Computed example of a mutant assay.
Amino acid sequence: MAVKIKDVAAHAGVSVGTVSNVLNGRDTVSPGVVERVRAAIDALGYVRNDAARQLRAGRSRAIALVVLDVGNPFFAAVARGAEARAAADGYVVLLGSSGADADQERLYVDQFREQRVAGVLLTPADAGGDVVEHLAAAGIPVVLVDEQTAGDDVCTVSVDDVEGGHLAVAHLLEQGRRRIAFVAGPLTTRQVADRLAGARRAVDDVEGASLEVIETDAMTVLAGRAAGKELRERADRPDAIFAANDLLAVGVLQALTMLGGIRVPDDIALVGYDDIDFAAATVVPLTSVRQPAEALGSTAVDLLLRQLDGGVDPAERQVRFQPELVVRASSG
């Protein structure tokens, strides 16, 4: 049978209210009584019923984070930043991975809402969906992470992906490359579309430069390897490749160097996006456009906590970071 708070009170020889005060960290209890209550908790093996406390309070000390792909090191870094910021204010982060599937995303959101989370950090699988409105109707604050298309009344943290795409391709053009391929991932993904827009802007500024778009159905190493294999076997290969994220770039690099004997960057220069932790440790260190992933996560939690504490000024609801090009050996 589960030990109840009244059992702790009886064992310590105090009231239930005193035990509650100790559990909630209130300073109205003398140190000697606090020590006695904690000894009773240890002796009986009491575990606090946090679900009941949440029901009374109306929300928990948990924040939900739903990302597109927890297997992508970029989102793992976002989660690290969110966890560190949340812990500083006594919150924990519950993580869900939608797999870029709107139905799976809605399932997670509904489950987290039932658990009365304090708020939700969301990288939406469907930017045009109604998840934000669904949560707002339930009184749950939301911050969109790595997203910038919501209305002014929604808090967002994002990176200027148009500028990121421009940085990547302008760098390749500066190296004298002119036949550039963009290994894209799904073009319906907002981040991919923005990076492509920036790439096109860079190409349009240089006479004789061209940009070929190769769409893949996923943004994974395997999808990048398939795209790299296709490019490797062509007679009219590009002289540079910009990949929409580092996982795609790693797959392309594997196909070119390990399977095809093509020299990177001598034959084909390569640039990725995100600057994930192992970008510098690939067989040819990968040039990449760095996103401040941990800062995205921590800033999202900060905006959420400010909403809980009374609101965020409209001028401060949208935070956009600037990307940074990190040049390594893969681009020459």
Score class of each variant (00 low, 15 high):
Ala84Met: 13
Ala86Gly: 08
Asp101Leu: 05
Val120Cys: 03
Phe112Cys: 06
Tyr108Cys: 09
Ser97His: 04
Gln104Thr: 15
Ala86Gln: 07
Gly129Lys: 02
Val92Tyr: 11
Gly99Tyr: 13
Ala87Asn: 12
Ala100Phe: 06
Gly96Tyr: 02
Ala125His: 11
Phe112His: 02
Gly119Ala: 08
Gln115Asp: 05
Gly96Gln: 05
Asp89Thr: 14
Val131Lys: 02
Ser97Gly: 12
Gln111Val: 04
Arg106Ile: 05
Ala84Gln: 15
Thr123His: 10
Ala127Tyr: 01
Phe112Asp: 02
Glu133Pro: 12
Ala127Phe: 01
Val131Thr: 15
Ala102Asn: 10
Ser97Trp: 00
Glu114Lys: 07
Ala100Ile: 03
Glu133Phe: 07
Val93Phe: 05
Ala102His: 12
Thr123Arg: 09
Gly128His: 00
Asp103Ile: 10
Asp89His: 13
Gln111Pro: 00
Thr123Ala: 13
Ser98Ala: 12
Ala86Ile: 12
Gly90Leu: 11
Val93His: 06
Phe112Trp: 03
Val120Thr: 02
Arg106Asn: 12
Val120Glu: 01
Asp130His: 02
Val92Ser: 15
Arg85Val: 07
Arg113Val: 05
Leu95Cys: 03
Ala82Val: 02
Tyr108Lys: 05
Ser97Ile: 07
Asp103Met: 08
Arg116His: 05
Ala125Phe: 05
Thr123Ser: 14
Ser97Gln: 07
Gly129Glu: 04
Pro124Asp: 09
Tyr108Phe: 13
Pro124Ala: 07
Glu83Val: 09
Ala87Gln: 14
Gln115His: 07
Gln104Asp: 15
Glu83Arg: 11
Asp126Glu: 12
Gly119His: 00
Ala88Met: 11
Ala88Gly: 12
Ala86Lys: 07
Asp89Lys: 11
Val117Tyr: 02
Val93Met: 08
Val132Cys: 08
Val93Lys: 08
Leu94Ile: 13
Tyr108Ile: 11
Glu133Gln: 13
Ala88Pro: 03
Ser97Asn: 07
Leu94Phe: 11
Val93Thr: 14
Gly129Val: 02
Glu133Trp: 09
Gly90Ala: 14
Arg116Leu: 10
Gly99His: 14
Asp130Arg: 04
Ala118Met: 00
Tyr91Asn: 06
Ala87Ser: 15
Glu105His: 04
Val132Thr: 14
Glu133Gly: 15
Ala88His: 14
Tyr108Gly: 08
Tyr91Gln: 03
Leu122Met: 11
Ala86Leu: 10
Ala82Thr: 02
Asp103Val: 15
Ala125Asn: 11
Arg113Glu: 06
Ala87Ile: 09
Gln115Lys: 03
Asp110Ala: 15
Gly90Trp: 12
Arg116Glu: 04
Gly119Gln: 00
Val93Ile: 15
Asp126Ala: 10
Val120Met: 03
Val109Ala: 08
Tyr91Cys: 01
Gly90Gln: 12
Asp101Trp: 07
Val93Gly: 06
Tyr91Gly: 04
Ser98Lys: 08
Glu105Asn: 10
Asp126Lys: 03
Phe112Leu: 10
Gly90Ile: 13
Glu114Tyr: 06
Val117His: 01
Gly129Leu: 03
Val117Met: 03
Glu114Ile: 01
Gly128Arg: 06
Gly128Ser: 04
Ser98Leu: 08
Ala100Met: 09
Gln115Cys: 02
Leu122Arg: 03
